[in-house]
Amino acid sequence: MDEQNAMKSLVVPGDLDALATIRRYVQAAAEQASLEKQQAYRLGLAVDELATNIVTHGYADSAAAGTIEVQATIDARTLKITLEDTAHPFDPTQQDTPADLDMPLDERGIGGLGIFLALNGIDDFTYERVDNRNRNTLVVYRPASEVSP
């Protein structure tokens, strides 16, 4: 398979009830790309955490409601998921990594865990601000056995 295979994109309202719908879409893409079970779970978690962040920080902080557009693209080597929203600019790569991960739960902060899990569960991540939209791109390498010679 040399060419890109883009799945029909998914557009959902930017609210928490849409999270399950987004996870189903990512799960279908992961199956189509023959990801391993653990890769598929981590990717699903990553997308879910970023979408949660868009809803609870992006749209909740601004007066205007918005949508989240999800697009899966599969090529010979990768599965790529893009998430786009119209909330204020937010670059997940600029967030501090939680510093106190090994501290007891009652002595530590618990912010930033979602973004931390998202960025550590996938192979590549980029953030861009394009036409007043946030675009998060998540990339997972498909298992080698699935790659054509």
């Binding site: 955490e49 949660t52 739960l105 009652d106 618990i110 865990l113 979602g114 899990l117």
Partner: peptide
């Protein structure tokens, strides 16, 4: 079958 960080925050809340 699935737990996001929102579940972790509830657990930390439990401990506290």
């Amino acid at each position: 079958s699935y737990m996001a960080s929102a579940g972790l925050r509830a657990l930390a809340f439990a401990k506290q």
